[in-house]
Simulated scan of single mutants.
Amino acid sequence: MAPVSLQWCAHPQLARDEALSWWLHRFAWANAISNHTLERQLFGGRAFWPRDVDRFAPVLLVDQCVSLLGLSKERMEAATLRRYEGVLYPRLTIDGWLPWIMPVGVFHRTQQHHGHAYCPHCLGEGRPMRVAGRLAFEIACIRHQCLLWDACPRCDAPVTFARVQLIMAGRFPCPACGANLAVAPRRPLVRRAFAFEHRCHAALRQGFSQVGTTRVSAVEFFAGTRILLRGLYGRRYLNGLTDTSTIRCLRWASAARPTTPFEHWRLQARLHPLAALEAYLRDWPKQFLRDARRSGVYRCRFESTAANPPWLANAMAEIEPALSHV
C-alpha cells in the first residue's frame, strides 16, 4: 500500500473510546469526501455503511484502518463492540440479540431503533461518539452529570450519526429534521441508575465487581444481572420481584413496561429497572429475598439456558420453585 501521506490530506486520530463508525465519518469529512466515496476508495465495490459498522466491522475494514493510522489491530478492535467480547457475551455475532447491546436496526441509510445514546454537551464540545453509547446500562454522561439522549431532541427520530454533517463547528443537524443535536435540555440524573452504570464500568475496567459481601468476576456479574432483569416485573400470570416491593420507588406500573427485550427499551424506560438492580445489589441478597418472598415470585423467572452464576444461584436456592405450588 502507498504511504498514508500520499493518499490522504488529513489524518484525524482515533480518540480514546471513540466508535469506529464515528471515526470513519470524521475521516471522510476531514478529507472533504463523502462516506460512500471513502467506502469506494477503501473497498471498491464492497459496501459497509448499510450495516452496523461497530458490530459488523469486517476484518478487511479493520486491517485498512490499521494501515491508515498505524495503530495495532487490538486498538482498532477496541473501537468496535468486539472490545466487550468474552465479558458481556461469549462471542460477538454480526446479527441477532446480544446481552447489554442496543440494536440500531440499520435499514439502507437509516436506523430503525434508538440504539446509540449520546451527550449533546459532549457533542457540542467536539468530543467523539463513544462505543459505550451502545451499552444498555449507559444512561448518563459522567463528565456533565446529565442524562444522555437516544434520539433527536426535537423530532425523536433515531439519529444516524454517519449522516450528521460536520461542516459547521458547534452545529450537528439532525438528518431527519435539521435540529441541532448539540442543543438539548439538560435532564436530571436518576441517582440509583447512575450508580449502577458506575458499577458496570468499574466491572469492565477491573474485571470484577462486589456483590454484597462477595467479589465476583465481571463475566459472572453481567450474566447474573441480565438474568435478574427477567424477573423484576410481572408478566401475564407470573409475579414480578418488584410488584409488591417494600421499597416503594421500585414499583412500576405494568402499563409503562415495554414487552420487547430490555436492550430494545428506550433510555427513559431503562432507568427504572437499572435503579432497581442497584438497590438489590447494594445489600445482596437481603432485599432481594424479602421482595421474592413477599411477591411470591417463582424460581423459574430467573432460570436461563446456561447455569446461573454462583452468586445468583445461591440466592435462587432460597426461592420456592414453581413445582411446589402446582
Rank of each mutant, 00 (worst) to 15 (best):
F137T: 03
G170P: 06
A169P: 07
R163N: 11
A157G: 05
D150Y: 07
C146N: 08
M168E: 15
G178C: 11
P175V: 01
R143M: 01
A169C: 03
T160I: 00
F137V: 04
L148I: 08
P158E: 03
F161H: 12
A179F: 07
R143Y: 07
A162Q: 13
V164P: 13
I139G: 09
T160N: 14
V159M: 12
C177Q: 11
W149H: 13
T160A: 15
C155P: 15
W149D: 01
R171N: 05
A176I: 01
R134S: 02
C146A: 11
C146I: 14
C174R: 12
D150N: 09
R154D: 08
P153R: 05
A151L: 03
P153C: 03
L148P: 10
T160D: 09
L147E: 10
H144Q: 01
A162W: 05
R171S: 12
D156T: 08
R154Q: 12
C155R: 12
A136N: 03
A151E: 10
Q165D: 15
C174S: 12
A179N: 10
D150P: 13
G178N: 10
W149Q: 08
W149G: 00
R154S: 10
A162L: 05
C152V: 03
Q165Y: 01
R134P: 00
A151H: 14
D150V: 04
L147K: 09
W149P: 00
E138K: 13
P173S: 09
C152G: 07
F137R: 06
A169S: 14
V164H: 11
L166Y: 05
R154T: 08
R171F: 04
A169L: 14
A179C: 09
M168V: 15
R143V: 05
I139C: 11
I167V: 11
A162S: 15
L166P: 07
V164A: 08
R143G: 00
A169T: 13
Q165A: 13
A169F: 01
V164R: 11
G170A: 06
P173F: 03
P173R: 09
L166N: 10
C141K: 14
N180Q: 02
R163I: 00
Q145V: 02
P158N: 06
L135N: 07
A179V: 01
L166D: 09
Q165C: 14
C146Q: 15
R143F: 01
L166G: 15
D156F: 08
I167K: 13
A151G: 08
V164N: 08
P153Q: 09
L135I: 03
P153V: 04
M168Y: 07
F172D: 09
F172H: 15
A162T: 12
L135H: 05
Q165G: 15
R143H: 09
P153S: 06
I167P: 00
R163V: 00
Q145Y: 03
P175K: 10
C155D: 10
T160P: 06
C152H: 07
I167Y: 01
A179W: 11
D150E: 04
N180D: 15
T160V: 04
N180P: 04
A157P: 03
C141D: 00
I142C: 02
G170H: 04
P173L: 04
V164Y: 10
P173Q: 07
A157H: 14
A179R: 02
A140E: 03
L181K: 06
A136P: 04
C141H: 03
I139Y: 02
D150L: 06
T160L: 00
A151D: 02
G178W: 07
C146L: 12
R171L: 07
